[in-house]
């Protein structure tokens, strides 16, 4: 009995010593898996889409093989990733599609996140139909004619209306408002995750069925299932300000990198590499395609790209 109490007391006081008796700021606690065994560790966030995996894979490969870091990756959705970045649970986001609210909060007000510059890739969201269908019916690429084809886009899930397929709930979308405001005879069906959406698109394509989907570029799937964008009313600055009243297309966004403020200052060579990291849409697609379609592991894909593009990445190491 005596023994047990003493161990308990010892364990308790050890815990107290470890945690310190003062304040504990949980916004400054890193991942428990970071920096294990004295290795210098960088934690990168991976978003759920493959383009983001490609960025991370190449950065990870260079950090590990050129600079000798250990890299941990964590999959986090877009908005929570900002919070994790601010707390230092991840050190960098390599591809952000534009979150003005978050940027204001963390970069502007709290100053826990700093900008990391352009990724070099421009992102664009839009509505797409498969190219085989667009060739047969060229007028489908104007939004005004979409209602004509609603019948053909029907599925069990959309009922009497045509189906407009949306993807992961984490993606930026105005589609429900667009369908209402443009008076379209369509039902937005949320696939719930990008994986589910891609699987469904490929099934449709295999049978050469018509479909209408929310999609974005750069995206490797275009190489496998060619798709043509449907022209929505042109985007003008500020036309998407009120989410209820949006009736225009999505903008073209230069994708951005963001770093944790502490990491940007004290991260040494790793931080410098991530700040310099800049490549093109073609580069990203090349790696994405290797991962998602040829089913290489992200590491193998990154190695292949790194081996054949030395001049590009040498510049990042300076």
């Amino acid at each position: 009995m005596r023994l047990r109490t003493t161990t308990a007391v010892a364990a308790g006081s050890a815990l107290l010593l470890l945690t310190g008796c003062g304040a504990a700021d949980m916004t400054k606690q890193a991942s428990p898996f970071a920096n294990a065994q004295g290795a210098k560790t960088v934690t990168l966030s991976i978003q759920s889409w493959v383009g983001a995996q490609a960025n991370t894979a190449v950065a990870q490969y260079l950090l590990e093989h050129e600079l000798g870091y250990r890299v941990d990756t964590v999959q986090v959705d877009e908005v929570p990733a900002w919070d994790a970045l601010s707390q230092g649970r991840v050190d960098a986001i390599l591809e952000d599609w534009g979150h003005p609210d978050q940027e204001q909060r963390y970069v502007g007000d709290k100053k826990t996140i700093v900008r990391g510059g352009d990724l070099g890739v421009t992102g664009h969201i839009g509505w797409y139909v498969p190219t085989y269908f667009a060739k047969q019916h060229p007028d489908v690429t104007e939004w005004k004619n979409l209602n004509k084809y609603a019948d053909q886009m029907r599925t069990a899930e959309s009922g009497a209306k045509g189906q407009l397929m949306d993807g992961s709930p984490s993606y930026i979308t105005n589609d429900k408002a667009l369908v209402d405001n443009l008076d379209l005879d369509y039902q937005v069906v949320f696939a719930g995750s990008e994986a589910a959406q891609i699987t469904q698109i490929r099934q449709f394509a295999k049978e050469q069925k018509p479909f209408l989907t929310y999609w974005y570029s750069p995206q490797w799937l275009f190489e496998k299932v060619p798709m043509t964008e449907v022209k929505l009313p042109a985007y003008k600055e500020g036309c998407d300000a009120d989410p209820e009243k949006v009736a225009c297309a999505y903008p073209h966004t230069p994708l951005q990198k963001y770093l944790n403020a502490d990491f940007a200052e004290n991260g040494g060579k790793a931080a410098a590499l991530l700040k310099n990291f800049k490549w093109t849409t073609e580069d990203q697609n090349e790696v994405s395609l290797m991962i998602a379609d040829q089913k290489l592991t992200p590491e193998e894909a990154a190695k292949k790209w790194v081996d054949s593009h030395e001049s590009t990445w040498k510049a990042w190491l300076s």
């Binding site: 949980m26 606690q29 428990p32």
Partner: peptide
């Protein structure tokens, strides 16, 4: 600072 922070800290330390 004095409650959740410590819980979170203890979890991180013990997992680590």
């Amino acid at each position: 600072l004095y409650f959740f922070g410590h819980i979170s800290n203890a979890v991180v330390l013990s997992v680590r």
